[in-house]
Design a protein around this nucleic acid. Sequence first.
DNA 1: GTCATCATGTAAGCCGTTACATGATTGC
DNA 2: GCAATCATGTAACGGCTTACATGATGAC
Lengths: 239, 239
Amino acid sequence: MLELAILGLLETHPLHGYEIRKRLRDDLGLLSNVSFGSLYPALSRLERQGAVEELETLEPTESRIPMTGSLSGERAALRARRTGSGRSRRGRKVYRITDEGRRQFAALLDSERNASPDDARSFSLRLAFARYLPPQARLRLLERRRAQLAQRLSEARATAAAKQSRLDVYARSLVEHATDSTEQDISWLDSLIDAERNRAVNPSPSRPSEVGNTGHDLQGLERQGLERQGLEQMEGDPL
Amino acid sequence: MLELAILGLLETHPLHGYEIRKRLRDDLGLLSNVSFGSLYPALSRLERQGAVEELETLEPTESRIPMTGSLSGERAALRARRTGSGRSRRGRKVYRITDEGRRQFAALLDSERNASPDDARSFSLRLAFARYLPPQARLRLLERRRAQLAQRLSEARATAAAKQSRLDVYARSLVEHATDSTEQDISWLDSLIDAERNRAVNPSPSRPSEVGNTGHDLQGLERQGLERQGLEQMEGDPL
DNA sequence: GTCATCATGTAAGCCGTTACATGATTGC
DNA sequence: GCAATCATGTAACGGCTTACATGATGAC
């Protein structure tokens, strides 16, 4: 779960732990507030497995170090790196995904294999990285989730009568709200499925205004991400 | 969490483990499919703590044993109990909440103390048992949840611009759907809060057609629950 | 006579948390 | 110089899952 999220974020561009947490929280709203107590060990694990590696910042491409939002913080990090020999002082450890990591990511993302507890979180995470799935797998992901919700809904309706008698106002309202939410989730999924089918028939040409477009290409997207990252830094950092 | 759910269900009437799981799944849709590997140990723990006790079925009030839905199963259980000395053969263990258990339940239910990770699940569970809360605490529960969601929403909106540029179609759709859902949750909460305030001003008289009514009284409600349980059994079981 | 369902339990392990410890840098 | 934020890590523990083991009963 966590590893999938980490690898997914690193697909786009190298990041350090603190930043990964931030992206998860602020951008995706997923796994909100993953604790460092699980994040850092996960990164070490991934490094040991050879799925990620520490980025060497000695190369002239220093401008690729991702922004943190705090400009001055950036400057400090760079200074620290320049001063010490490589990375002596306690500084950020920027990780980059490896080919092995990409392999693992693809395997984790493919819900075919690990069809395990395909709960809401798992689905959301996979959807967030759906651009890295081949179109058919993406469609299957959506349809499987739809089927799940639909089944849960019909089961809920089947036992509705029995429940009603046992539940008080509060529990009843809770159950009804849950049902409503599920219905909305389903129609949202329907719209996504629809869009996906249209895309299959009439694939959109790459428009540079849209990040990720239809994206069936890992390498290309990753590079695109890095370039965008570089640009942002140029814009924001007067250094 | 689990203990709160167990105690909450036992407040109404004695149950055995298998049935508790069923109620959680079918009635509330909460903690869906709690595994027995956590349910039974939790029951043992609660028994050791004196929060629940095994119900002796030797007394003439055998009719209070709750239904399982399978009528024949009921009969079998009764037979097993009658045959052996007390409960020799491997049969169901029906638990009843104790006074100590009620104390614990009240403490757990009051989110004032354990304001910990007041996530969606925790809130849903508490709301499901909201009838056991005094009116003010009930209102606070709803308002606190509302405030939480509202804050999350405003934070999401504050960083909306930055996100947009980083997210692709899928992640964007996910985030937007999450926002919509949160908005709906909030307006649902608003309606509950409204109803709650009206109830405070104009308390509804006890109508027997409604389970739990406004319920500020634990003992009374519990007894009501037992009576209802008895009735259901009369209706359904030809024995 | 065997399959599905009901029913209870144990053991191993995963995945995460909280709490703690450390330290750099920035802004006031 | 002090608080806030950035940044990384360790240790202990918690709660729940999976897999396994056992057995009764009813339906076909």
